[in-house]
């Protein structure tokens, strides 16, 4: 049995559902990311697990224990809020010690555990500062230490990186991930940033309009998105219409603008939509003919826009030191059959 179970979670505000039947499980020590656009119900799901929102229906169980009758202050869950929600009138030490004080941990033990927690987030030198005297990244680490020091059963992170600048965000992603591995704590991260979700989590659940669209390890969700929404939301993709010519189990022969190709997946009907990642498309001698419309330099890669009969496609090619293709050049686009996935709308 999974450590955290969420079954059929529904939350209505008035008559509109914010969360509309969410099911997932998280194993002990696992890092799950809830990824989705703003307003899709991520925070609502998280706050229902924390006990701050009473679900309209559904079941939440931690370690086999139903949480319905358990108050938020009895759930033993550590939370890092988007705003960090530090206590401004307390020092870093007092902030971190608060949860231990509430648990009536003896003063000597408390001091040791606070010191350990501050060391874990590399803030030992700032113990006597007040939150306002710290940078955003330091404040976030205080919030993390405060949530971890109580040795919670579950760690919930609600868009913890969204108020940090880009460079700090990259650092903190790696750091939080390392800390999570080191203390082996079951964690749920809510984010609308796909890079963050893919980079940090063991599994990613993509949410849209109050439902989970797909869930799995980052590379699987990225490679086999299953729906047009997910493939678009998780990184950039090319969606192209295709006609089905022939089927074999798990494979399809298709025609894209008159060019015959192969793809992975099952589909009914005569027409379908394909998702092909820009980095899997290559320029070749044969394939879908097109014309280079524009070319942008991105450092490690070149990003081309190519006009074809099937619409405009984005192509990412690694920068190998040479000059890029010129705008207006005639090209053929090709990709491995395994890179073309059938998606459903």
């Amino acid at each position: 049995m999974a450590f955290l179970e969420v079954q059929g979670l529904v939350k209505h505000y008035g008559s509109t559902p914010a969360v509309d039947g969410v099911d997932f499980t998280v194993e002990r020590g696992e890092f799950l990311s809830l990824l989705g656009p703003s307003g899709c119900g991520k925070s609502t799901t998280l706050m229902a697990i924390a006990g701050f929102i009473e679900p309209t229906s559904g079941r939440i169980a931690i370690d086999g224990r139903d949480m319905a009758a358990v108050k938020p202050n009895r759930r033993n869950i550590g939370i890092v809020f988007q705003s960090f929600a530090l206590f401004p009138h307390m020092t870093v030490t007092e902030n971190v010690a608060f949860g231990l004080e509430m648990r009536r941990v003896a003063a000597a033990d408390r001091a040791n555990r606070v010191a350990d927690a501050l060391q874990l987030v590399r803030l030992d030198a700032f113990a006597d500062r007040y939150p306002k005297q710290l940078s955003g990244g330091q404040q976030q680490r205080v919030a993390l230490a405060r949530a971890l020091v109580i040795r919670p059963d579950l760690l919930l992170l609600d868009e913890p990186m969204s108020s940090l600048d880009a460079k700090l965000r990259d650092e903190m992603r790696v750091e939080i991930r390392d800390i999570q591995r080191r203390v082996a704590i079951t964690t749920i991260l809510v984010t609308h940033d796909q890079t963050e979700a893919l980079l940090m989590a063991d599994r990613v659940a993509v949410m849209d309009r109050g439902r989970i669209q797909c869930i799995g390890p980052p590379h699987e969700v990225y490679e086999k998105p299953g729906s047009a929404f997910v493939s678009n939301f998780l990184g950039r993709t090319n969606l192209i219409a295709a006609e089905i010519i022939a089927r074999s189990p798990g494979r399809l022969r298709l025609a894209v603008a008159g060019v015959e190709i192969e793809a992975v997946g099952e589909a009914t009907g005569e027409r379908t939509t394909l998702s092909i990642r820009p980095e899997r498309v290559a320029f070749g001698e044969q394939g879908l003919p097109g014309r280079v419309e524009s070319c942008l330099f991105m450092g490690g890669q070149w990003m081309y826009r190519v006009a074809t009969q099937a619409g405009e496609l984005v192509v990412l090619r690694p920068n190998e030191g040479g000059a890029p293709l010129a705008t207006g050049a005639s090209v053929h686009l090709a990709w491995p059959a395994a890179a073309a996935h059938i998606v459903h709308d």
Binding site: A50, F52, P72, N73, R74, R75, N76, I77, G78, I79, F81, A85, L86, F87, F98, G99, M102, R103, R146, A147, I150
Partner: peptide, 8 residues
Amino acid sequence: AAGLSLGA
């Protein structure tokens, strides 16, 4: 909410 989640 942070205070509550810490057990207060």
